[in-house]
C-alpha cells in the first residue's frame, strides 16, 4: 500500500525552495475558505493576479496564487501545492489550470482539500499531445514544448504582454493516474469546447472520473482566466463553490 508507505518522502524529501504566493485577502471575518490557484509551469501566479484573484476576494474568498518552481517534476510541484495549502489558516480549495490541474489532481491525494476545481485540465497526456499537434506541431514536438498564441488566447485578447511572460519548462508527466482524493472533496471540471490544448472529449473523461459533467464556456481559449470573458467562468466556479459549501455543512 504505497499510500501508507512513503519511502520517497521519508528517504529523500523534496528540497525546499522559496515559493512566490500572490494573495488578495478579505477584510474582516473570513467566512469563506481560502482559494489556492495553481497555474501550469508555463505560467506564474501573475496569470491569476490579472483578474481572478481580485474578483474572488471581492466576493469574499481570500484568494492566493502559487508560482510553480522552476524545473520541478510532478512530485516537487505537488509538494509545493500541499505546503502552501497547509500554510493557509483554513482548509483550502484547490483550483488548478492546465498542467496545474494535473498537479492539483495529485495533490488531492496528499491533502484533504475543502473542494477542488480543475480548469481546462491537461491531465490526459495523449489527448493533449494530439490537440497540440493539430494546432502547433512544431511547438508541441520540442523537448520543452512551446504553447503559441492561437492555443492560449482567443482573438480579442491583447496577448503580447502575456506571451512574453511565458516560460517553457519540460512537459509534466505523471507515471500513473491520480489516486483517489483524500477526504472525498467535491470536484468540479471547467473548460471550453473551443480549447485547442485540452479537447472536449478529455474534459468529459476527467469530469466522469470525478463523478460529474464539465461546466463549459464555448468560444473561450485555453487561458480562460486571461480571456476577455474571464468573469463568466470564475463567477460560475464561485457559485458552484458557494452551493457545495452550504450543502456540506
Amino acid at each position: 500500500m504505497s499510500d501508507l508507505l512513503r519511502f520517497e518522502d521519508w528517504t529523500s524529501p523534496v528540497p525546499p525552495v522559496e515559493r512566490e504566493v500572490l494573495s488578495r485577502l478579505v477584510e474582516g471575518e473570513d467566512e469563506q475558505p481560502p482559494l489556492l490557484f495553481v497555474p501550469g509551469p508555463s505560467m506564474g501566479a501573475w496569470a491569476f493576479a490579472e483578474h481572478w484573484l481580485t474578483h474572488a476576494a471581492g466576493r469574499g474568498f481570500p484568494a492566493h496564487a502559487l508560482t510553480p518552481r522552476a524545473d520541478g517534476d510532478l512530485r516537487a510541484h505537488v509538494h509545493d501545492v500541499v505546503q502552501t495549502a497547509a500554510s493557509l489558516p483554513r482548509q483550502t480549495v484547490l483550483i488548478g489550470h492546465g498542467a496545474g490541474a494535473l498537479v492539483v489532481s495529485h495533490a488531492l491525494a496528499r491533502y484533504p482539500a475543502r473542494a477542488a476545481v480543475l480548469v481546462a485540465p491537461a491531465v490526459d497526456r495523449w489527448a493533449t499531445l494530439g490537440a497540440g499537434l493539430k494546432t502547433n506541431p512544431f511547438g508541441t514536438l520540442r523537448g520543452r514544448p512551446r504553447l503559441n498564441r492561437k492555443q492560449l488566447f482567443s482573438a480579442g485578447v491583447d496577448a503580447e504582454a502575456y506571451l512574453s511572460r511565458l516560460v517553457f519548462p519540460r512537459r509534466l508527466t505523471a507515471s500513473k493516474e491520480a489516486p483517489r482524493p483524500v477526504g472525498s472533496p467535491p470536484v468540479l471540471v471547467v473548460g471550453s469546447p473551443d480549447d485547442r490544448v485540452v479537447p472536449r472529449k478529455s474534459l468529459d473523461r476527467v469530469a466522469t472520473r470525478y463523478g460529474g459533467a464539465p461546466l463549459l464556456f464555448p468560444g473561450m481559449a485555453h487561458a480562460l482566466m486571461l480571456d476577455t470573458g474571464w468573469q463568466e467562468p470564475i463567477d460560475a466556479i464561485l457559485d458552484w463553490l458557494t452551493k457545495e459549501l452550504h450543502a456540506g455543512s
Partner: peptide, 15 residues
C-alpha cells in the same frame, strides 16, 4: 526527523 514525524496529509513547513 520531520518527514517521518508529520501527519501524512498536513506536512510541517519544509523550512
Amino acid at each position: 526527523s520531520r518527514p517521518l514525524t508529520e501527519f501524512p496529509d498536513f506536512p510541517m513547513p519544509d523550512s
